[in-house]
Design a protein around this nucleic acid. Structure first.
Length: 166
DNA sequence: GCCAACGTTGGC
DNA sequence: GCCAACGTTGGC
């Protein structure tokens, strides 16, 4: 089993939204490294820290707000083909249209997995706490300019954060 | 709202 | 294949 950290902007899709929906397709990832994690390494049942980023709300500081569970295998992210979607990708749509026209197999550029709600922490484990805790040395999210929206987390770090919030 | 850091694009 | 320019992310 692997552990992950998934980022979302709190104003955009929060842990409360996931709790309400119970399960959500993690669409809109347009970064190749993050895509590769979903396509090649993420497995059903893997657990992920749910991280809120870029918060301008003082009551919702950046940090880990709870836990989500991987609830599907990777599948095509259809939003890449939707002109009205904010994550529309013309080049991937063009590839798809060409493949349909020429009746050749198509490997979608962008895939996604579903995440299911697992748990919300009573209090978030904030980024500032993560940064000062020696037990969390080496966590990717601590690195300045860590822009990966899906990143691996070690079992040790995962368990440490979860235990601290139980 | 600013700006540094990063990934991606496009011209050469 | 390099690298400058660009757009986006994310912390403050």
């Amino acid at each position: 089993m692997n552990y992950w950290l998934i980022k979302s902007e709190g104003d955009c899709y929060s842990i409360d939204d996931l709790k309400k929906d119970m399960k959500s397709p993690w669409s809109g990832v347009r970064n190749f490294q993050a895509r590769n994690f979903m396509r090649d390494r993420i497995k059903v049942g893997d657990l992920a820290l749910f991280y809120h980023s870029s918060s301008t709300n003082k009551d919702l500081p950046n940090g880990v707000y709870g836990i989500a569970e991987v609830a599907s295998s990777p599948y095509t992210d259809e939003s890449a083909f939707d002109k009205k979607d904010e994550h529309y990708d013309p080049s991937s749509d063009k590839r798809r249209v060409e493949s349909l026209k020429n009746k050749i197999p198509f490997e979608p550029t962008w895939v996604l997995v579903d995440f299911a709600f697992k748990k919300k922490f009573d209090t978030p484990f904030t980024l500032s706490e993560i940064k000062i805790d020696p037990k969390l040395d080496g966590m990717l999210v601590r690195q300045k300019g860590s822009r990966l929206s899906i990143q691996p987390v070690s079992e040790k770090h995962f368990n440490y954060i979860v235990t601290k919030r139980q």
